[in-house]
């Protein structure tokens, strides 16, 4: 038996990745570069537009200054309040729609596989269709106005809220539920006293988070006629009243920032 060279392991060449991993990384890089090259070559960009872009941007900004602050009251103000109503009401409505779907999607609450799948399908399709597309559909259904916007916000939020709520439901500890069941509590009581206290923080967190997103989203719904501040913005842009556009943008920016601060505050106190 040959004497083993004690220094052999030290002479071994070390690599951070296995050859297969290196190949995969290289291939991934190649795919990224190829996609980029393809996109740059194939995309339809008009060089003249690109050339005078800085000039046009500067022109736009000059026309926006100074913002027409006199326009704020009442037109922008009323539309802003409407936007907030759309966002809030849409969020509340989405919870009414999402809670049953989430209960159906949570595997520890609904034991029927087919219903779980159906709920997942509902959630995925709600999330895949953008809120503006939902708004287009609901404008065709309800006619232009905040009703369409509220429904659009609600339908878009169902997927998001339902998914997070279902995950929270699946993470609940089974102990309290079993105890209640053993004590003979009916289904409603198990839900109210065994599950609700456990998902309550997640529930309010999701509600605040989604409300914050919905405030942003509802600001643009008016572009397709679904009410709110987007209508005022669209009108101002179509009439080339750039000072008014600046006012609307500042108002939207202010509301979004305030909403974010409020949400962060409430969340810090609540959770």
């Amino acid at each position: 038996m040959a004497v083993r060279d004690p220094a052999a392991p030290l002479r071994r060449e070390w690599h951070r990745f296995t050859p297969a991993e290196r190949l995969a990384r290289w291939a991934l890089g190649l795919v990224c570069v190829a996609a980029l090259v393809w996109a740059v070559r194939a995309i339809d960009i008009i060089p003249e537009f690109l050339a005078d872009a800085p000039e046009q941007m500067a022109d736009l900004l000059v026309r926006m200054w100074p913002p027409d602050l006199a326009h704020y009251y009442p037109a922008v103000h009323v539309a802003l309040i409407e936007t907030l109503h759309i966002a809030t009401l849409g969020t509340i409505l989405s919870f009414f729609l999402a809670v049953p779907v989430a209960l159906m999607a949570a595997r520890n609450i609904c034991r029927v596989k087919a219903l779980n799948l159906l709920a997942q399908l509902i959630l995925v399709s709600s999330r895949s269709v953008n809120s503006l597309v939902w708004a287009l559909i609901f404008v065709a259904v309800f006619g232009p106005g905040p009703a369409a916007g509220t429904m659009a916000i609600a339908c878009r939020s169902v997927g998001f809220v339902g998914k997070l709520l279902a995950e929270a439901l699946e993470e609940t500890a089974p102990g309290p539920q079993e105890a209640l069941r053993a004590a003979g509590a009916p289904w409603g009581h198990i839900m109210a006293k065994g599950i609700w206290p456990q998902v309550q923080p997640a529930f309010w967190g999701i509600a605040l988070f989604r409300w914050d997103i919905n405030v942003r989203e509802s600001a643009v719904l008016g572009l397709v006629g679904a009410g709110g501040i987007g209508v005022v913005l669209d009108d101002a842009i179509n009439f080339f009243q750039w000072e008014r556009v600046a006012t609307v943008l500042l108002a939207v920016l202010a509301v979004v920032v305030v909403a974010e601060v409020v949400v962060t505050r409430i969340r810090a106190r609540l959770i």
């Binding site: 995309i43 690109l50 046009q56 736009l60 600001a219 643009v220």
Partner: peptide, 28 residues
Amino acid sequence: IAVCRSLHYVIVAILFVKALGFGALAGV
């Protein structure tokens, strides 16, 4: 960065359409 994040991308797209003309460039 906060301003970039606060403005909805559709609003930004409108402004870029006005500034850069219609087409994919504004979307990008």
